[in-house]
Amino acid sequence: MSDEVFHPAVEDLPLSKVLAALADPARLAMVRAVAATDGVSCTRLGQDAGLELSKSTMSHHQRILRESGITRTRVQGSHRILRLRREELDARFPGLLDAVLAAPAEPVPVRAARRERVNAH
């Protein structure tokens, strides 16, 4: 496994891609969990976000957040630590993260969580 992780340059971040990533309730819950810490491991993120998703689904959501420029992933030994790219996002889209994090939390649809549990068995 490579220690190199792709992170787009902040000046290349289109607002539409950032908003699309934040539109998913599971990813929004993940962003809230990351924002509440100074960094969280990928393996702990689901628990901190209150999600019951498969490892592959969590990895997918983490990739979307990273590739849309919302999070930064740092490899630390066998762990990957996620942090919010707050300063960069605030510079590019002033007030966006504050508005998103201040909005009422939306529940992750039950059928999606249930489907994940069924597929895991």
Rank of each mutant, 00 (worst) to 15 (best):
G69Y: 01
L84D: 02
E87K: 15
R66V: 08
A21R: 01
L53Q: 09
A112T: 15
T37Q: 12
R83N: 15
T71I: 13
H79L: 14
A120K: 13
R27Y: 01
L84P: 02
A120S: 11
R32P: 06
H61T: 02
G77N: 07
G69R: 02
M58S: 11
V75R: 15
H79E: 15
S16H: 06
I70N: 00
K55L: 12
V118L: 10
A21P: 03
A21D: 00
S2D: 15
P107W: 01
S56F: 02
A29Y: 04
I70E: 00
D24F: 00
R115D: 13
E52V: 13
A26Y: 05
R72I: 13
T43Y: 07
A26Q: 10
R92A: 12
E116S: 15
M30L: 13
A9W: 04
R86Y: 02
L89C: 05
G39C: 08
L97K: 13
I81R: 12
I64H: 04
F6R: 14
N119K: 11
A23R: 15
T73H: 08
V108S: 14
N119P: 01
R66N: 08
P14F: 04
V110P: 01
A36Q: 14
V75K: 14
A26F: 04
R80Q: 10
H7E: 14
A49H: 07
P14K: 11
R115V: 13
A33Q: 03
M58N: 10
A9N: 06
G77F: 04
M58F: 04
D98W: 00
L22H: 01
A29G: 08
D98V: 09
V5G: 06
H7N: 11
M1R: 06
P94G: 09
H121Q: 11
R86I: 03
F93C: 12
V110K: 12
P104H: 11
P8C: 01
S68D: 00
L19Y: 00
R44M: 13
E67D: 06
R66E: 03
M30P: 03
A120E: 14
R111Q: 12
M1A: 09
G50H: 04
G77I: 07
G69V: 01
R72G: 10
N119W: 01
V34K: 04
A120N: 10
V100C: 07
K55E: 13
N119V: 01
S16F: 03
E116Q: 15
A35Y: 00
R72M: 08
E4D: 11
L15C: 09
A102K: 09
R27T: 04
L19C: 02
H121C: 03
P109D: 15
E11S: 14
A35M: 01
R86M: 05
E88G: 12
